[in-house]
Design a protein around this nucleic acid. Structure first.
Lengths: 222, 222
DNA sequence: TCAATAGGTAATTTCAAAAATATATGATGA
DNA sequence: TCATCATATATTTTTGAAATTACCTATTGA
C-alpha cells in the first residue's frame, strides 16, 4: 500500500501524498481544490497538480466538472453502502478462489499478515490508539493476503481500489469495533488454514456489514 | 459511451480520442507513446497529453513506468481470461439484482436497447460488417441496460470499466460469433422480461466464455 | 573481443507564464 | 427594490520552453 516516501518522480510523490490526504480525511469531502493553494501546500507546479488530480478523478476520489476545477469527491451513506456491498461481492469470491488454490507460501503470508495486525490490535487495546495509519495498513495487508492466491490480478486490483474507498469512509467515521473486528480477523485466518470458504464468507459478511453499520451509526456520514 | 465529439475542454476531447484509439486498436498494444508524435497527431501540448495519459494509466489502458514515459498497455491471453471472468462475476450479480428490482421503465430500456442491437446484427448479417464501432456500442448499451436497475452506481461503473477492457480484446481479435451471439442476446432479453435471473446467468456465462474462446482461437492474442 | 565509461542526443518531466473561462462586483434603468 | 448588463477579478486551462533523466554510440583499456 504505502511506498517509500521519496520514490519515483515528483509527480508520483505528490500523487501519493494527496491521495493519502483524501483517504485520511485531511482533505475534506467536497472541499474545493484550488490549484494555487495546493501549489503552496505540496510544492509542485499547477501542471503537475493537474496531472495528479486527473489521475485521482479516474479513481473517483476527486471530481472534475467541466471547466470549474477539481474538488474532493463527496461522501454519502448511499455510496458507503454501495461500496461495502461491492467489496463484499469481490472479496467473498476472491476468498473462495484463494482458499482453493492457496499453497504453503500463501498460508505463510496470511499467518504473517495476521500476526502483524493482531499485534497492532493488542497494542491499541492496551495503549489507546497509537498509529491509526499503520493499523489500517495492516488491516489492508491482511485482507489482501487472504485473497492473494485467487489467481486473478484484475480481481485483486479492483478489490484494492474498492477497499481504499471503503477505508476512506472508515477514517471519516472514526469508528472502531475494536475487539469484535479482532476476533473476526482471527476467525478468518483460522478458516483460511482450514480452507473453509463458506464459513469465511459468512464471517466476512458479518465483518463488513458490521463495520458498515458501525460507521453509519457514528452519524458523521450523511 | 460516446459523447459528443466536441464537448468539454480540449483535454477531455483528446482523452476520448486517445482512449477510443486504444480500445479500437488503432494505437497498438505495447506501442511506445512518444509525446512529440502524439502532440502532432492530436494537436495538443505535452502537458495536456501528460494529463490524458495519466488518467488512462489509472484505468490501466496505458502503463507509465518510472521516468521512461508511457506506452499502450500490453495484452495477453492471461489478462483476457482474467477480465472475462471478472466481467462474468460482476455482470451475473448485477443482473440478479436488476431482475429483482427492475420496473417497467427498466423493461422498456432493455427492449429498446435490444431492438437497436438486433437491427444492427441483422444488418451485419445481410451486408457484411457496416460499422463495427456503433455495433459494439449497441452491444455495450444492451448489457448496460440489463444491469441498469441493479441499484448500485459503483457496481455499474466498475462493470463498465471492465467491459471496456473486454471490448478492447474483442476489437483486437477481430472475432465475431455472429448469429450465436445474436441468439444469446435475444434470450437474455426474454429472460429479463421473465425475471429468470438463474437462466440468464447461465446464458451470460455461455455468452462470455464463448466469446472468450472465440477470441483466443483467433490466435491474435498471445 | 569484451566491459566500462564518457559524451552527445533524444525523450521525459517540471515549471511559469499566456490564453480562456468562470465568478464576483458594481452601475444603470425600470 | 430588483433585475440586467458591463467590468473587473479570480481561477482554470493550455501552451512552450527549461531542467532533468534516460538512451545510444564510440572510445579506451584490459
Amino acid at each position: 500500500m504505502a511506498h517509500n516516501i521519496d520514490e519515483g518522480t515528483t509527480g508520483e510523490r505528490a500523487y501519493r501524498r494527496i491521495r493519502n490526504d483524501i483517504l485520511q480525511g485531511r482533505l475534506a469531502p467536497a472541499e474545493k481544490l484550488k490549484l494555487e493553494r495546493l501549489k503552496e501546500d505540496y510544492g509542485v507546479s499547477v501542471s503537475t497538480l493537474r496531472e495528479v488530480l486527473s489521475r485521482l478523478s479516474s479513481e473517483k476520489l476527486v471530481v472534475a466538472e467541466g471547466q470549474r476545477g477539481f474538488e474532493v469527491a463527496p461522501v454519502s451513506a448511499e455510496e458507503l453502502k454501495d461500496i461495502a456491498s461491492l467489496r463484499l461481492l469481490l472479496e467473498v469470491h476472491a476468498i473462495a478462489q484463494s482458499f482453493q488454490s492457496g499453497d504453503m507460501e500463501w498460508e505463510a503470508r496470511v499467518v504473517a499478515a495476521h500476526h502483524k495486525l493482531a499485534a497492532m490490535e493488542e497494542k491499541k487495546k492496551a495503549e489507546g490508539s497509537p498509529d491509526i495509519e499503520t493499523w489500517k495498513r495492516y488491516d489492508w495487508e491482511f485482507h489482501q493476503a487472504l485473497i492473494s492466491a485467487c489467481g486473478s490480478r484484475e480481481l485483486m486490483e479492483t478489490h484494492g481500489a474498492v477497499f481504499d474507498k471503503y477505508l476512506r469512509y472508515q477514517m471519516l467515521a472514526l469508528t472502531d469495533r475494536g475487539e469484535i473486528a479482532a476476533r473476526e480477523h482471527r476467525q478468518l485466518m483460522e478458516l483460511a488454514l482450514k480452507r473453509d470458504a463458506a464459513k469465511a464468507g459468512d464471517v466476512l459478511k458479518a465483518h463488513i456489514t458490521g463495520g458498515l453499520a458501525h460507521a453509519l451509526a457514528a452519524g458523521r456520514i450523511v
